[in-house]
Amino acid sequence: MISRALSGRRVLEFAAAASILLLTLAFFWPLIPIGEGRADPADMTLLGPGAELASSSLLNTSKLAYDSLWIDVEEEDAARAQLLSKEAVWLLERAVKSALDNAQGDLRERILRAARGYLAMSNASMSSADAALLLDPVRPAVDSALDSLLAGDVDEALEEWLSVKELVLSARRAVADALIALSRIDPNALLSDEHRRALNSSTLRLKELSAELDQLIYLFSLIERDPEAAKSAIKAALEARRGELDPVEASRLMENPSVSSLISDSEHLDPSQAGRYASRVSEFR
């Protein structure tokens, strides 16, 4: 959940950054002309609250996205975080317009650089929330598909996987969108160390989720490509585990080009990248 109270340390960091910005604005204020149709110079100070909303929303939604593939998440939490991200965008865009209309030189550039970073945070937050909303309802089917595959029931596994495949792929694209947005942020343009830590931890969390999804998608792409070969290979693996695999049958199986190709391609699975699914993915190498 998004905290409504900042820790003492965050207050000090944020206050220091905001104070510098406000002092700079106060110094230049008499020199800033206010013309008809121009944004209010005071809107430049909206950078601070917009930045705080963007940072806290990103922390929240990246965690929701990561958790959604493993435990239930509340749809209301993701929807609320999206609304806060949109509010951050509204505040930041007002600050940008005011800076473009009223500020000059270093002050203008500092506001614009910071605002660009926090706008990217907000966009990443909304994409992360999208991923959470997509993944939460598909989790049971993904788990069931993996369990069926491990039991050798390829048909059941494929049926479960295909019922949610497009949602998983959409979630993967949403995570990619979030990571692309975050990669464009200059950490030095952010207002506090707390915001830089939020950027780093959220990026790491989303990268881990991305890697997990990639492993699941690749695994089931192998099964989809040739279900019959998958049935033969998994059946042989289960028999070998029980000590029941006939060596002659094993040799004959490896002479089958489809099975041989499937087994070879399964070597590209990387359990170390599968995170919470590592133990199950390792069964298919």
Rank of each mutant, 00 (worst) to 15 (best):
I234A: 10
D226E: 10
R242H: 06
L219N: 04
I217S: 06
A237N: 07
L213P: 05
E244G: 08
S210R: 05
V248E: 14
D214E: 15
A230M: 01
A211E: 14
E224V: 12
I223E: 01
E212P: 09
G243L: 07
P247L: 02
S210G: 07
E249M: 12
L245S: 04
S221A: 11
A237Y: 03
I223A: 05
K231H: 04
I223F: 05
A237T: 11
D226S: 13
A211S: 14
A229Q: 02
A240I: 00
E239Y: 08
R225H: 12
A230F: 01
F220I: 01
A233T: 02
L219Q: 08
Q215D: 14
K231C: 05
S232L: 15
S210N: 06
A230N: 05
R242K: 15
S221N: 07
E212Y: 09
D214M: 12
G243Q: 07
K235M: 09
Q215N: 11
K235H: 14
R241W: 15
A230C: 00
V248R: 10
G243C: 07
S232I: 11
Q215Y: 13
L222M: 02
A236W: 05
E244N: 10
S210F: 08
D226N: 15
L245P: 08
A240T: 02
S221P: 06
S232W: 06
L222I: 00
K231V: 12
A233H: 08
D214W: 13
A236T: 06
A233Y: 13
R242V: 08
D226A: 11
I223S: 12
A236Q: 11
E244V: 07
D246S: 14
I234V: 15
E249Q: 09
R225F: 02
A236S: 06
Y218K: 03
L222S: 00
E239K: 07
V248M: 14
E228R: 13
D226C: 09
